[in-house]
Amino acid sequence: MATLTAQAIGIAGLTPTYSAAASGTKIACGERTFLHVKNTAGSSMTVTLTATGTVRGQTAADLVVTVPATTGDKMIGPIPAELFAGTTDGLAAVTFSSTTSVTVAALRI
């Protein structure tokens, strides 16, 4: 399991550091926090953020985002706590359908 630390994007810019996607990834929730996922594999893959919250009494659905093959590149977020914060640690759980040739960075503006 890996907990990603959000890298702050400042006025002077940021050259983000990416890490290999891993099973059991977690990220701190935030209205200005998002994931940047890059997929260089030959097949598309999905990123799932597990929903833990409710909206007007209805259980929120997981967020599932498809990242295209080869040059796939997706920005996912924001990641609000009321929808994604885990009940025990307050972190959002992120899963990847494949981790082969997939890198990810947590970013905050």
Rank of each mutant, 00 (worst) to 15 (best):
A2N: 12
I9K: 01
G13H: 07
G13W: 06
P16G: 01
T17D: 12
T17P: 09
T17R: 12
Y18F: 10
S19K: 09
A20E: 08
A22G: 08
T25A: 14
T25N: 10
I27L: 14
G30W: 08
T33S: 12
F34R: 07
F34S: 03
L35V: 11
L35A: 05
H36M: 09
H36N: 13
N39V: 13
A41V: 00
G42W: 03
G42R: 08
S44L: 14
S44Q: 15
S44E: 15
M45H: 01
T48L: 05
T48P: 04
L49C: 07
L49Q: 06
T50W: 05
T50L: 05
A51K: 01
A51W: 00
T54G: 01
V55A: 12
R56G: 07
G57K: 07
G57W: 02
Q58Y: 14
A61F: 09
D62Q: 04
D62H: 09
L63H: 04
L63Y: 02
V64K: 10
V64T: 15
V65W: 01
T66Y: 11
T70C: 02
G72E: 00
D73N: 13
M75V: 07
I76Y: 04
I76G: 07
P78Q: 08
P78L: 10
D89S: 12
D89F: 13
G90L: 02
A92W: 03
T95V: 13
T95P: 09
T95W: 12
S98L: 08
T99K: 02
T99Q: 03
T100G: 00
V102E: 01
V104E: 00
